[in-house]
């Protein structure tokens, strides 16, 4: 498929969903699901294509939220906050990624470093109650988080806040745009080299690619996207708390991605939407504990659907339509390796 046609097609499908979903659910619910979807997209890119299993994607999500709130309070210009929500997580991701990839940490060690990094942020943010912890005029607020920051407005009218319906459309447009950007990145020489590294790091290195640099860049992009998700969440909730950094949040991102299908971009987005909605729905009438269900879902996904729902359905569909299984080598490798 030509790139131009694919972009057009994706945009059309995206727009159809954007206008169809509000028929099913409220704008309010859909906004937060869109934030989750963007977050899942970031891990889908970093893990599914970069082969970097980050246990701490929530760190960049939380940093995005905090960067937005702090910058918005200090400048009273939320769009500067939006920029900060992209830049700060990206910078932090670049530093952390450089430390890990130039240090040549292997899988488990990378997992522990990203996990620990998230924990440090979580613990630190929980202790920042009191006057001493403030950035400019923004108090970090410890366990209670930061409430009452100015939220995004329409750029042409600073008193017209993006709210409920307009925030949803803004978030969903961002999701479509980010999806397309990631698609284009993957079609670029950089993206192809990245997938090459995922398949065989040594071979890519022997062919002259700077694996450390490429992985760091991929990790940085993932951090920036997660930061945007955090910014959307902050605008939706109108308060941010250290819970954005929690282990529960990190695990949810991974669950969305693996259930949806690591190695695809649409899979994690769908996973985030469906499981995110499931969680909200279960939270309302809680007979069963949320963690219990998420945990069972994750175990079942690893044991029975290691490739995720989306690729499984995809291959079933193509088997039906073509009469024979069409499997990509990369997918099969993926499920075996990770």
């Amino acid at each position: 498929m030509k790139t131009g046609r694919e972009i057009l097609l994706t945009a059309i499908v995206g727009f159809i969903f954007m206008f169809a979903l509000p028929l099913l659910l409220s704008h309010y619910t859909l906004t937060v699901l869109t934030a989750f979807a963007i977050l899942a997209l970031s891990l889908g890119f970093v893990w599914g294509y970069g082969g970097i299993l980050c246990f701490g994607q929530a760190a960049f999500y939380g940093l995005g939220g905090y960067a937005f709130a702090v910058a918005a309070i200090n400048t009273q210009m939320p769009w500067l906050g939006f920029l900060a929500a992209i830049l700060i997580p990206a910078i932090v991701a670049a530093l952390l990624g450089a430390m890990m990839f130039y240090g040549r940490l292997s899988d488990v060690y990378m997992a522990v470093v990203t996990l620990v990094f998230t924990l440090i942020l979580f613990k630190f943010m929980n202790t920042t109650a009191g006057e001493a912890y403030r950035i400019g005029s923004a108090r970090l607020g410890g366990y209670n988080g930061i409430p009452g920051f100015p939220t995004l407005t329409k750029p042409w009218n600073p008193t017209d806040y993006l709210y409920n319906e307009s925030l949803y459309y803004f978030a969903f447009l961002l999701l479509i745009a980010l999806y397309l950007i990631v698609r284009l990145i993957l079609k670029s020489p950089f993206g192809r080299a990245l997938v090459g590294i995922r398949e065989n790091e040594l071979r890519a290195e022997l062919m002259g690619y700077d694996v450390r640099l490429l992985k760091t860049v991929a990790f940085t992009i993932g951090g920036a996207i997660a930061g945007i998700a955090g910014c959307i969440f902050a605008n939706w909730a109108e308060i941010i708390t250290p819970n954005m950094f929690s282990l529960g949040q990190s695990s949810e991102i991974i669950i969305w991605t693996i259930v949806g299908g690591a190695g695809t971009l649409a899979g994690p987005i769908i996973g985030a939407g469906v499981l995110g909605y499931l969680k909200i729905a279960l939270g309302e009438n809680s007979g069963l504990n949320n963690f219990f269900i998420m945990g069972i879902v994750l175990i079942a996904a690893v044991l029975f659907l290691p490739r995720g729902i989306f690729p499984t359905v995809q291959s079933l569909l193509s088997r039906v339509s073509l009469g024979r299984p069409r499997q990509r080598i990369s997918r099969r490798r993926r499920s075996r390796a990770g």
Partner: peptide, 9 residues
């Protein structure tokens, strides 16, 4: 990790 969440729940 899934087991951990499930046990906690």
């Amino acid at each position: 990790w899934g087991l951990s969440l499930a046990m906690m729940g």
